[in-house]
Simulated assay, not measured.
Amino acid sequence: MEKLYVQSVLVTGSDRGIGLGLVRQFLEKPNPPEWVFATSLDPEGPSGKELKKLALDHPNLVVLQLDIRDLKSIEAAVQRVEEHVKENGLTLLINNAAILIKFTCLGNETAKNMSDLYNTNTVGTLQVSQAFFPLLKVAAQRNPQEGLSCSKAAIINISSDFGSLEKMSGWILSQVISYRCSKVAVNMLTRCQSLEYGPLGILCISMHPGWVKTSMGTCLMPTTVSESSSGILKVLSGVTEEDAGSFLDWKGNVLPW
């Protein structure tokens, strides 16, 4: 994991679950980033409590308010990040924020639920990536290393193997139609980003964090937040341009689309 050195990282949806686990992992590294940006819908509310406690012990942790569905909120976060990273740009963007409102099946899925999940999980990921792209591009241009890596500049979209058309994981356990569709779209977004941003020095991949028991959902074969987040960092330390546009899990396995 020591091959992974990022000067700055931003993790969306990082006041709980996998996002919070990733923030902890970065802060606890022997070579932590100069800046770790953690976002929450309400940093001053109960959900921001753990982040505020972490910030007391880690001066390199900056807690930001961010609603990935709100362009004004995104623009405000970009401005705050730019104030800290200055001419160095942003090294790593981890699009982790997502929602799962209802455990739906084909019989009770609704247009509103589909729209809400798509607007958050897919459109939100797109909007955040677009907004931070200039800072990622700066980081890529300033880094002299050849090829692509997460230490140079990267966008990591946290997806799910529920979005694999071939696997259709967990179908008997939970259909969650809207969630599956939104993650399929996230994977296509990753492929498009890889084609557009890869030549500019920005690595783009989708990642399945495992079946993690979090407040968003439960599973029969739980992976802990710590196992998932540490595994993700280990994978990120080894990915190269050969992995650009790919769909990997937290153990580094390639998943089918």
Rank of each mutant, 00 (worst) to 15 (best):
S215K: 14
E34Y: 04
S206M: 12
M188G: 06
L200Y: 08
M114F: 15
G252N: 08
A111D: 14
T122V: 09
L148M: 10
L56S: 06
K251I: 01
A55M: 07
Y197A: 15
N119M: 14
T240D: 11
L200Q: 15
N113C: 09
K72A: 12
I94K: 03
L126Q: 14
Q141I: 04
T104W: 02
E2W: 01
N31M: 12
G13V: 04
A76K: 08
T39M: 03
G17V: 10
A131W: 00
N88H: 13
F26W: 09
N157R: 03
G210Y: 00
I68W: 01
L41M: 04
K167Q: 12
V23T: 10
L195T: 13
T122P: 09
S237G: 15
I172D: 14
C181L: 15
R180D: 11
G170T: 08
V239C: 07
V81H: 02
V6G: 06
T39I: 05
M221I: 11
T120Q: 01
M114R: 04
L165W: 02
E196H: 07
L61G: 13
E2Y: 02
A244R: 14
P222M: 03
V186A: 10
E82D: 14
T104Y: 03
N143C: 06
Q193D: 12
L126R: 06
L54T: 10
D249S: 11
S246D: 13
C105A: 15
V212M: 03
D249L: 07
Q141P: 07
G201E: 04
R180S: 10
H208I: 09
S14F: 05
T240K: 02
A153P: 05
S215A: 12
